[in-house]
Design a protein around this nucleic acid. Structure first.
Lengths: 106, 106
DNA sequence: CGGATATTTAAGTCATTACTTAACTATTTG
DNA sequence: CAAATAGTTAAGTAATGACTTAAATATCCG
């Protein structure tokens, strides 16, 4: 989840992800939505791709990008389990400490 | 959401947040869980605090930290609405483009 | 082929970040 | 008060990140 979370922590990349959410778009089309260079957007697209959040398909001289719903769903699920896990995890840790003699109260 | 998302994008801070999820803990107690200096943890705690994810309370010479469920819930909600919004937002954008004459097909 | 088009990669800049060590600010207690 | 304790802040470092401009890579089309 590391890579995906870091990827969407960047606002520009969240916007890009939105743009390719349910339709393929060529890189240039995506770049046209922002006031930075195409190169910058290309780099953001690479981060999203390496995080598994988007797919790239070549079509002639264009590169079409689209979100990968599976990996987005996976990130969502991992976040959900993080919110939940935190509680249970803390609980087992407290028990562990108790067993070793109520440790670490500074 | 910006600050909160960036805060939890860091794995160390996710662990810290877990530790103070449902019980107040002094900074030193938190730091004892990691193999970095207290200073480093103190800095992470500041990031979490500035993102509104934890609360700090002074008790004598100790500083007690605990998660702020409201702001965590808020982040969760904002993420949820991001996953949803992406679809609808894209839709309205497509309509906008259509109205201006099917613009920007690169 | 050769130029135009779509996009990426390379290389560099500047800001930010996670960390360290060292110094500082309380607060408690002998 | 002075020493010990709990923690933060300051200053510096090395790595990373978002961006730029310039060059490279493909592909299409006359």
């Amino acid at each position: 989840m590391e890579a995906a979370l870091k990827a969407i922590a960047e606002p520009r990349r969240r916007e890009i992800l939105r743009l390719v959410w349910d339709a393929e778009r060529p890189a240039g089309d995506i770049a046209a939505h922002f006031d930075v260079t195409h190169a910058a957007i290309s780099q953001h697209l690479r981060v999203l791709k390496e995080a598994g959040l988007v797919n790239e398909r070549r079509d002639g001289r264009r590169r079409l990008y689209i979100a990968r719903p599976e990996s987005i769903a996976e990130l969502r699920a991992q976040l959900e389990s993080y919110w939940d896990e935190a509680l249970t995890r803390l609980k087992t840790e407290a028990e562990r400490e108790e067993r070793r003699g109520n440790g670490r109260q500074s």
